[in-house]
Amino acid sequence: MVVFDKPKSLSPVPFHYCPGCTHGIVHRLVAEVLDELDLCGKTVCVSPVGCSVFAYNYFECDMIEAAHGRAPAVATGVKRTHPDNIVFTYQGDGDLAAIGTAETVHVGARGENITIIFINNCIYGMTGGQMAPTTMPGQVTTTSPYGRDRRIQGSPIRVCEMLSTLDGVAYAERVAVNTVPNVKKAKAAIKKAFQNQIDKKGLSIVEVLSTCPTNWGMTPEAALEWVKTDMIPFYPLGVYKDADVKELNPTSTKEVNE
């Protein structure tokens, strides 16, 4: 009897992620949700540039690999072509909150009926530990070797807070995956973000505070602890917006035209 198996929405290949990285947990949560809501066959995932650039190898749904930061625009093109497909982007902090800021803000302004899974680990992982738009004040990275000085490098962006000001955003929640209870909450948030899309509520984003032990220079355990002691106080967990903005998003245009 199998008591624990890989979700069907995950491909039978091993992840390439570093030890202690939480991308794998988030991938699994997304796949479990796709399984539970029976969405895999109608889902198109747009993967980013960053550590999760190979996500197209891991999910069993149709996949598009976008340019750095452009996933929300690509997802818009897919969703507007096939409004009945379930479309989600999976993006890191550099992708979503630096090079793709315009795409992120405007996908929210348009209230595209898609789901965004946003991995915030305060650093550029794939390129080897440079400063991210979400790098914490004082945090040492290879491009902020003396610690991020807010007077010089500016202050981090709190994405959920920012996006929750936009009318088109239906749901914005920040979660973490550093503890088992938090993982459970994260899954519930991800499930809600997909359910919202089924219900045509508008843009849903789940920001997941994640770890990068390799580039943080920590053990996996210490990294999980740092999420608790440093990240969560700066990036408070919780629901920043939960509204039905159906009348403001493109899903209602068909009825308008008719």
Partner: peptide, 25 residues
């Protein structure tokens, strides 16, 4: 659909998505 994007960059990436989804765009 005619959609005015927030930039040329977004517009061409929306094209990428629509084209990937099989649309003539």
């Amino acid at each position: 659909l005619c959609l005015q994007a927030e930039s040329e960059i977004s517009a061409i990436n929306m094209i990428m998505g629509a084209a990937a989804a099989g649309s003539r765009c």
